[in-house]
Amino acid sequence: MSTCKINNQIRRLRFENGEMTQQALATEVGVTRQTILAIEAGRYSPSLEVAFKIARTFNEPLEAVFQYEPEPA
């Protein structure tokens, strides 16, 4: 069975958007700062709803924020 990894550009996008803090993004999206930290570090894959909210916060399409990369077994 192959494993998959979801990469994200949240850290880069935060800095490109006025060095937005994790707390500010968390408040905007409606999750805790620790959850934003976990998503950035790739330790947690958010729900579609949270993913869309993050993308909308940065005014970017979902694919510009999250990339799905299947890894061979």
């Binding site: 409606g30 999750v31 805790t32 959850t35 947690y44 958010p46 729900s47």
Partner: peptide, 11 residues
């Protein structure tokens, strides 16, 4: 500060 915050989806 965050004692009254609801659990988010990860929690």
């Amino acid at each position: 500060k965050d004692t009254e915050e609801a659990r988010d989806e990860r929690e």
